[in-house]
């Protein structure tokens, strides 16, 4: 529970996709001229991240990791297919985006009309592939946390694009120096927002460590409205035990 909360806040504020690691900047800059389109794209990103990160977690866990193929039999324990992760992740993402597009078009034409045009854009959005790759390097321990990570990173991205779109709508009335107009000022504003977001760094105590429940968590539980939490106590321990048994044999 606590680790879910911690990961949730960490992914939204501290490791914000846009301000801390600059993922999805291309669409962030291109689609942030109006708030309404920004909301559409942001929602699509949350959705696709929420689907692809857990899927890629499963792929990573049962196919790609060092020794992940052990479920096929003990003789597969030495295989490390890690070098295939880029191609598998991007294929999963492209397929999922296509699939989601078809399903949404079929079952909810109104949602399709608002999200639809953004879905193909998303296949090549670095935030989506970045979400999966960071999930892999940060060694998220179970499926529930992977889902949490996907959704909360998406929310972080959503917040960022919403904020910049609102600022860009207002800044039209300001007298910006001509060479800075448009792109230049957007970069500088994003930089300033990023500095603001840095101050969230003090919110949790662990700096770049993978989240672990510490007694000094400062997150206030009353403020949490949304906590996508799926209790799935994956039988990790059991699996490692059987894995060890297999190795001992």
């Amino acid at each position: 529970m606590l680790e879910h909360l911690e990961l949730f806040f960490k992914s939204i504020f501290i490791d914000n996709m846009v301000f801390a690691v600059f993922l999805g900047m291309c669409s962030y800059l291109a689609v942030s001229k109006k708030v309404s389109t920004a909301v559409g794209l942001g929602a699509a990103v949350i959705f696709v991240l929420g689907v692809t990160v857990p899927l890629n977690w499963l792929l990573d866990q049962y196919l790609l990791k060092d020794g992940a193929l052990v479920w096929l039999g003990p003789e597969y324990a030495d295989y490390d297919l890690g070098f295939l992760s880029f191609i598998l992740f991007i294929a999963t993402i492209a397929t999922m985006v296509q699939l989601v597009e078809i399903v949404v078009e079929k079952f909810s034409p109104s949602l399709y009309n608002s999200l639809g045009i953004f879905l193909p854009l998303i296949a090549v959005n670095c935030a989506i592939l970045g979400g999966s790759l960071f999930m892999q390097t940060r060694e998220i321990p179970n499926l529930g946390l992977a889902l949490n990570y996907g959704v909360s990173s998406g929310i972080g991205w959503f917040l960022a694009i919403l904020a910049i779109a609102a600022i860009r709508e207002k800044i039209r009335y300001s007298n910006v120096p001509a060479p800075l107009r448009g792109l230049g000022i957007t970069f500088i504003i994003t930089g300033l927002m990023g500095i603001g977001f840095q101050s969230f760094g003090g919110m949790l105590t662990g700096d770049n460590e993978p989240p672990e429940p510490t007694e000094t968590t400062t997150a206030k539980t009353e403020e949490i409205k949304e906590n996508k939490e799926i209790k799935k106590e994956i039988d990790d321990e059991e699996r490692t035990i059987s894995y060890n048994e297999v190795i001992n044999k």
Binding site: F22, G184, I188
Partner: peptide, 24 residues
């Protein structure tokens, strides 16, 4: 990290001041 954004902003500023046809 945010400093990178500001540096890019300044690069754009310099480039567009030198070549005013690029101004949006």
């Amino acid at each position: 990290p945010p400093a990178a954004l500001i540096v890019v902003g300044i690069v754009i500023w310099v480039q567009r001041s030198r070549n005013r046809t690029l101004i949006e």
